[in-house]
Structure formats: C-alpha cells, structure tokens
Design a protein around this nucleic acid. Structure first.
Length: 488
RNA sequence: GGCGGCGUACCCAAGUGGCAAGGGAGAGGUCUGCAAAACCUUUAUCCAGCGGUUCGAAUCCGCUCGCCGCCUCCA
C-alpha cells in the first residue's frame, strides 16, 4: 500500500512503526460555528482511510480532536452572550449531527483541548527547561513562545525557508517576540477571558500545543499518520513538529496526509470570502450519500469544485447504481421469464467479480484513490447488466448474482456509499426532493394502473403515468412489476 | 516577491514511459401497448502551447501561457 507523504512529497510504501498497530491523529475542527462542506471533505476522507486501513487488517487507533478553546470561540461567546464552553458544547453537538448524517464513524478517542491542560503545561515547561522557549510578561501574567530559530529543521514540512518567511512577514509594532516567526505556546489571558492557572500565571493554551499534548497522550511520541486539511500544513503542522520534536527528541509523525480544498468558482471555500455552504443546508436538498459520493468521486488531494451540477451528477450516478441493483434483485426474485438470448458463461462473471475486487484494492492501495475505486463498481455493474440481458437460467444466475451483491456490499462498506437498498434510495430521494406522496400512495396508483393495463385501458394507464410524472415520479414497467423512481 | 500545485472530450474525472478508465450529457440502433431501464454502436489520431530526451511521452526535462493554493485564522 502506498501513501503520499507531504513530508517527503512522494508516495511511499506504508509500513507502521509498531508491528500491526497504526496510530492516526487527525486535526478536527474548532467548534465555534456550523461545519461546512470543506470540513465534511476532511472528515469523509479520513473516515474512508481509517476504514480501509482496518479492512487491510491494521489495528488502528484513530484520534480526532476538538479545539474547544481559542479566540474565535471566545469572540462567538461574547456575541451570543454565552460562556466559551457553552459555545463549544453547542457546536460539538451540531458537529455530531452533521457528521453522523454523513456516515462518519466516530474516532476511538475524540479529545478536547481543555481536557489536557495539565499535559500542555508540562510540555511547555519542558520546552522552557530545554531552552526552546521563552516567556514574555503580558499584563499580569506571562506568555510562553516557541523560539523557532532553536529548531533548525523548521519549515521541513511546508518546504519553507525561515529566511523567506521572515522576509514576507508583517511586523506588528507591539510585538516583543524575538522573531516574528516565533509562535505562542501559552497565552497570558486578558481581562474577561477564560483562564487556567499555570506556572506563568493565568493563561490559556496556544493553538498548536494541544495537538502535541493530545496525540502524545493518546498515541505516543511518534504517530504513524498525522492528517488534516492542506491549509493546516503551515503554520499549524509545522509548529506542531517544531514543538513536538524539540520536546521528545523523536520524529513526530511518520506519514503526513493532507486533503485538498473544496473550491467554488475555482476559489478556495472559506469563511472570509463568504463562499461556503454548510453541511446542513446541502443536506436539505441532497441525500447524505450524494454528498459522500461527490466527495469521494475525485482524489482526496485534488481540489474539488463544488456546485449544484456536481451534486446532480453524483445523484445521477448513484441512481444508475441503484437501478442496476434493483435489476439484480428483481432477477433473483422473479427469475427468467424469457428464453435465453445469449450464453454469458458464469465463469466469466466469476472472473469479473475477482477483477472488481482486485481493481478496488489496487486503487485504494495507491494512495486511497477512491475515484477509481468507485469506477470499479460501475464496471462490474455493466458486466452484470449484460449478463442479465442474456437471460440466464435462474438456477445458475441466482448464486452468482447473490455473490455479486455480497461483494458489492463488502467493498461498499469501506466507502460507506452504495449501501442502501434500491427501495431506500428512492425513499431518500422522495425526502430530498420534497415529494409529499408516500410510498403507499404511489403503490396504490401503480396498482390502479396495473388494472387499467390489464383491461387494455391504456388511456387511463397513461393518465396515471402522467399524473405521477407531474409530481416527480416516473414509472418503469418490467416483466412482473412496475418500478417507481423519483425523477432526477 | 518566496515556495508549491494544477491545465485530459460538451461537463465531471482517472491515468505519471508502451495502443486515452469510469460517470453525466448528445447521436443512432435493439427492446417496449406507450415510456423508461438495460444493452450495442458512436462522441479526444489526442492529453494548454512550443521545444527537447527516448525505439516509444498525456506521462520525463526546459521554456511560455492560463488558473489556483500557502506565506495571517482556516478542513
């Protein structure tokens, strides 16, 4: 299995540090607002990576944190007249609502920064003791800064030269830091801000230190995989490396995995540009599976352009998938009603199933290429459709089609898409398309039309078809039944 | 300004040295009471442009053009 490592800028063979154990730490979210589709991408990407690592037999410990104290949370609390922890608690709950809807599995540990204050203080103290950090008096208390020049490898992840960084930096006149590139480990708290007691007086943690404290406590001093959005490479992960490696004297993480951005009109989606969509507003109009499919339909490192058209396409692809699945189920249920039209050998289907599994793994082994993994499902379905078209005898077709279903559900569990029944998919569409007609009512209409057709009252039958189509339901007549589908 | 990435058909999107995956859309056909689905055929002699390396390049190298990201909080 190969994984692209931001540190080396190459795909590398993946080998865990400790036998079969894989410790993964992914930077989660700062909980001060609703999550947007960019957060969803990161969450879905790492969800699939974790699922695949487990499928490969690794013993994965997945840690994903919540940053529950920082400037934005404090600001939000002041705006809403709440305490900082009421804000963080609220948005953690909202986070779970969105992520659960998207089928994101919970991490093994989901630690909060504020539950690790003591660990952070210990690390900061140690960095001071070792001479990597210094204090500055700020008001009543002191802040602690990491002195970047003490870490010669600074910039190795983001491929930046310290001198270049300093050249471009905006100098704050009030800044007493030894160097503008130095970053805060522990912040002296200002009047009215939340604080914790520390050797430096009342203060709160800097942003980066929490990840060092939490990853070391829950995994160890060296992580197998550290991940997050590409925007975290600098400065967040760079700073984490500096403080962690200075503290432990060990490599902080073996593999660095970063997902690309969601763009809108080619520009990065961001709060400041105001061009973002929250997960929940998208889920109003599209089923969560559509969103997941969309997010996995391109490689995780590529930029991904978000638009209505993209979501519609994802929806159409899923519909095609479920239509084929329905056909398979239908064949198993009703079997052969016509004379065989060809002679597709079952051995060939066996082979195709094996090819599908191989192709899926080959794709995922190559830096989690979900785009190809998804394509492999469609390739298999095309072959199965062709097989069913040949009208094979049921005694031969039933076992092989059941196997196809089994294989599909085995691999779809890794992506956590393609896992509904065709029926559930259509019901999900009724909901997102805001069609108020119930399944029972639709079936009633179908029954009525069936009678009309039996009486050769095609005029009435067509009326019913048109009536349903007007509210967004299309009918497909099959040999033994009529299938209803939501018009896309 | 420094560093990095991207540019593949009408649209989305794989492919990183050996005849250009997959999905959507379009066209023609088979099937069908009608319709749909499905299947078959078809849609890039070519991968931003120009040059080079090679028996051979979308894939490697150089230059040019265009777009984007990071350098400040950010998934």
């Amino acid at each position: 299995m190969k994984v692209y490592n931001t540190m080396t800028a190459k795909k590398e063979v993946f080998t865990p540090i400790r036998d079969n154990f894989v410790g993964v730490y992914a930077c989660g979210v700062t909980v001060y607002d609703y999550c947007h589709i960019g957060h969803a991408r990161s969450a879905v990407v790492f969800d699939v990576i974790i699922r695949y690592l487990r499928y490969k037999g690794f013993d994965v410990k997945y840690v994903r944190n919540f940053t529950d104290i920082d400037d934005k949370i404090i600001k939000r609390a002041n705006e809403e007249g709440l305490s900082w922890n009421e804000v963080s608690e609220k948005y953690i709950n909202e986070y779970y609502k969105d992520m659960d809807a998207l089928g994101i599995e919970r991490a093994n540990v989901e630690p909060k920064a504020t539950e690790h204050i003591q660990e952070m203080i210990n690390i900061v103290q140690s960095l001071l003791d070792k001479g990597f950090a210094y204090t500055l008096q700020e008001g009543e208390s002191k802040s602690v800064y990491f002195e970047v020049s003490k870490f010669p490898e600074y910039g190795k992840l983001s491929k930046k030269q310290l001198s270049d960084l300093l050249a471009g930096v905006r100098v704050d006149v009030n800044d007493l830091k030894k160097s503008p590139a130095d970053f805060v480990l522990w912040k002296a708290s200002k009047e009215g801000e939340p604080w914790w007691e520390s050797p430096w007086g009342k203060g709160r943690p800097g942003w980066h230190i929490e990840c060092t404290a939490m990853s070391m406590r829950h995994i160890g001093e060296t992580l197998d995989i550290h991940g997050g959005g590409a925007d975290l490479i600098f400065p967040h992960h760079e700073n984490e490396i500096a403080q962690s490696e200075s503290y432990s004297g060990k490599e902080f993480a073996k593999y660095w995995i970063h997902n690309g951005f969601i763009t809108i009109d080619k520009e990065k989606m961001s709060k400041s540009l105001g061009n973002f969509f929250t997960i929940r507003e998208i889920l109003q109009r599209y089923d969560a599976e559509v969103v997941r499919f969309f997010l996995l339909s391109s490689h995780y490192r590529s930029p991904l352009e978000f638009s209505q058209e993209q979501l519609m396409e994802a929806q159409a692809s899923l519909d095609r998938f479920y239509t084929s699945m329905d056909r398979i189920e239908d064949y198993i249920k009703f079997g052969q009603k016509q004379k065989p039209k060809g002679h597709v050998k079952e051995e060939e289907i066996e082979l195709s199933i094996k090819d599908f599994a191989k192709e899926f793994e080959r794709a995922m082994d190559d830096d989690f290429n979900t785009a190809i993994a998804i394509a492999s499902f469609f390739e298999l379905l095309r072959i199965i459709n062709r097989y069913i078209d040949a009208v094979p005898p049921l005694d031969r077709a039933e076992p092989i089609l059941s196997r196809v279903k089994g294989e599909i559900s085995k691999y779809s569990a890794i992506l956590n898409i393609f896992n509904k029944t065709p029926q559930q998919w259509q019901v999900a569409l009724l909901k997102t398309k805001k069609i108020t007609l119930s399944e029972a009512e639709i079936n009633q209409k179908i029954l009525e039309r069936k009678k009309a057709r039996e009486d050769k009252d095609y005029k009435r039958a067509d009326e019913i078809r048109k009536e349903l189509e007007a509210i967004g339901i299309v009918l497909e007549d099959k040999k033994d039944s009529t299938l209803w589908k939501v018009k896309l």
